[in-house]
Design a protein around this nucleic acid. Structure first.
Lengths: 241, 241
DNA sequence: CTTATGATGAATGGATACCATATACCAAAG
DNA sequence: CTTTGGTATATGGTATCCATTCATCATAAG
């Protein structure tokens, strides 16, 4: 049961890092969500005190959230330090999707040489469970399991820097492929099996290439939905601002 | 002289965003530096109060710095929230270098269609000034000008999301190519001219491909230096931990 | 002697109050 | 109409304080 002294002060198991819900991350999630769904438009100022009231917390977690969102590029700060929603460049977001795919692929490549049989088995379990969820029409669950599958592979790459980037990339792009692309869940299930096959035989290049395409496939529909949402909320309020 | 009312509440000119030196970013820079030079080793705990004393500031800017460094992946937080230096995976860092090159290349591609003649001229000026600095042996200045050249091109891409990613990528990797690769300054000057040529004729693909190779070329020497530093500081202190 | 249990200490996220500073806004003066 | 100057506002930072939570250690039980 582990030496228990201090070979690894804390980071003994990166996979179970629960990230106990800090208020700041909840606040960040809310704001991020509103930006990616067009409820909060580029140029909108984000005032700490306002959001603090609105959400019933103090200024501090809001401040932390804003700082994080600035680092992610969702907000920008003007010279005075006040934050506003960053302009959204759809073409640039396309590039971000591509980077997301590339980074995930790099993780898969590293994972091919580093993943353990147990981890492969665990990932396979997740995928099979996802398959069942899809079969039973539980899309929400399936989406969650999909997320956990990819996370499992990414963690198996044992590259903390890549993992951090991936987190940011994932947060910078809209989600919901399972809900808006009817045939995607089934496709995802099959793709995952191919990825697992490649990992099993430690074929990093193949794992990477499949992963890249797999992730990239969701980009266009998601971007189109975002574009629609953005134009939909831009029009009614003011023609051009 | 601009309408001056409120066409653009704040983000009127992304290029001059001065980022007035917040204490938190200074603190972050110090810690980051110590990690990337091997003075602060993976596993080291970062205690807010300690660094607050040491640097003569309050806990808050240290806290902000730690939060930022966690997002960047330089630190990891254990379940209790206490932060420690993330394990450095050199192969993973190699991937980060590649991502840096790819992202910079994507920026160059976007810039090719969006950059203005004035911006091209400004970038060219920077490169020429860099050439002079190199000729006169002012490596420090040259390095700074190199940075500004790339920044100018990246900003011309007008993709805030990419810019944010690039900032993180740049911070995640070691620097100093001008100092440790004797022939690099001259090479950089020439590469920059090629990039400018491609931008001038709006050949995005060529600009991207040159940029990618240009950035990637510095990876190996920098990684080797980091590897040396890490093993150098790991040995004397304690055999394995 | 080893394992389980409980208690203590340390560090964090968060709340609150306060201040100096720098910007944005607005109104009056040229 | 433009410029100038003053005021209000929001921010980063400091200083405390607190509840929670984890790590460590000592003790008790097997």
């Amino acid at each position: 049961m582990k030496k228990a002294t201090e070979d690894y002060p804390a980071s003994e198991d990166l996979s179970l890092r629960v990230q106990r819900n800090r208020l700041s991350s909840q606040v960040a999630a809310i704001i991020r969500e509103q930006i990616l769904t067009g409820q909060l438009l580029p140029g909108q100022r984000i005032v700490q005190a306002e959001w603090a009231d609105r959400l019933g917390v103090s200024r501090m977690p809001v401040r932390d959230a804003i700082n994080g969102l600035c680092l992610e590029g969702m907000l920008v700060q003007n010279s005075a330090g006040s934050a506003e929603v960053a302009p959204i460049d759809l073409e640039g977001l396309e590039d971000v999707f591509e980077l997301n795919a590339i980074t995930t692929a790099l993780c898969a490549r590293r994972a091919a040489s580093r993943i353990t049989p147990e981890e492969i088995a665990a990932a396979e379990d997740l995928n099979e469970e996802m398959g069942r969820a899809i079969g039973e029409g539980r899309l929400q669950d399936a989406s969650e399991l999909n997320w956990r599958f990819h996370r499992a592979v990414n963690i198996a790459a044992r590259a903390p820097q890549l993992l951090a980037l991936l987190r940011i990339l994932a947060r910078s792009t809209p989600h919901g492929s399972f809900e808006i692309i009817p045939e995607w869940p089934a496709q995802a299930y099959d793709d995952h099996k191919l990825i697992l096959d490649a990992l099993r035989v430690r074929d990093g290049e193949r794992a990477a290439s499949i992963t890249r395409q797999h992730v990239l496939a969701t980009a266009q529909p998601l971007l189109q939905r975002l574009a629609k949402r953005l134009s939909a909320s831009r029009q009614p309020s003011s023609p051009l601002r």
